[in-house]
């Protein structure tokens, strides 16, 4: 019963936010030219999704995001694993990684444009760069979450290094890795869209930047909603998998 109440309250908050948005705009408390009403924005969103050009932009962004992610996650995971497995590497590299992680990645964007030019490689490159540090750091944490007791058990029953990797390391690390995947995607999406907004010929980030520059508030807000929904959907998908193996954490 309580769970149901909580869910109802959440829905109510979202509905209320949209209602306030609608009222602020319709009543003229906020200039409707600055803040078009929620209903108008949603109508625009439906309209935009019909357009071939917008669909093409979405496809471009999706390709960039998926490519950057597919490169950053395995490479970052491998580096993170090697660092965590070697005491010396860990001691040497960990503080450096923390330094690198603390630098805002956006200041490197002009360099990516200079090196890769404006296009696919620049955005994938920047997405990769924005993501890899968090993947490396999360993987190190995941490796450290493997219990020594479990490794000793595997060793006492004669497990080969391969068996230990797949039967102990991987399942021990999976909950932390899923969490890492989720957070990495947030960084990845941010990186790619930022790169698109900064300098690009296509992609949904580029569109949003253009709408903003041209004062097309309805389209701009619709674009914001679109990306919000995509990001939330991915996030929830991974969270759903996470809860399915929550008992692994014990």
């Amino acid at each position: 019963m309580r769970g149901l109440g909580v869910k109802a309250a959440r829905v109510a908050i979202v509905v209320a936010l949209f209602a306030i948005w609608e009222i602020l705009s319709r009543s003229g408390i906020v200039n409707p030219r600055l803040l078009p009403s929620a209903s108008d924005t949603l109508a625009t969103l439906g309209d935009l999704l019909q357009r071939a050009s917008v669909r093409k932009d979405l496809a471009v962004t999706a390709t960039e995001v998926v490519t950057a992610f597919a490169l950053a996650v395995p490479v970052g995971a491998l580096i993170g694993f090697l660092i965590a497995e070697n005491r010396y590497f860990a001691d040497v590299a960990k503080p450096l990684l923390f330094f690198a992680f603390s630098i805002p990645k956006s200041i490197f964007l002009p360099m990516f444009i200079l090196v890769f030019g404006v296009g696919f490689a620049q955005k994938v490159g920047f997405g990769f760069f924005s993501t890899i540090f968090i993947v490396i750091m999360s993987t190190t944490t995941a490796v450290e979450s493997v219990k020594v007791e479990h490794l000793t058990v595997a060793r006492s029953y004669g497990a080969t290094p391969m068996q230990t990797a797949f039967r102990v390391y991987l399942p021990s690390m999976l909950p932390v890795l899923l969490e890492a995947l989720r957070i990495s995607m947030i960084f990845n999406l941010t990186g790619v869209i930022l790169a698109e907004m900064y300098a690009s010929r296509d992609g949904i980030g580029h569109q949003i930047a253009t709408w903003g520059e041209n004062f097309q508030m309805k389209q701009l807000l619709a674009g914001v909603l679109m990306i919000a929904v995509i990001a939330i959907t991915f996030n929830e998908l991974v969270r759903w998998v996470e809860t399915r193996c929550s008992h692994w954490r014990t």
Binding site: K147, E149, H150, T152, V153, A154, S156, Y157, G158, A159, T160, Q163, R167, V168, P171, S172, L174, C245, H247, W248, R249, T250
Partner: peptide, 23 residues
Amino acid sequence: FQEASLFPWLTAEENVEFPLALR
């Protein structure tokens, strides 16, 4: 071993099978 040596992601019987599965 002491407590907490079972693999939490495996069922009781899978834990018991573990040494056999390795071989």
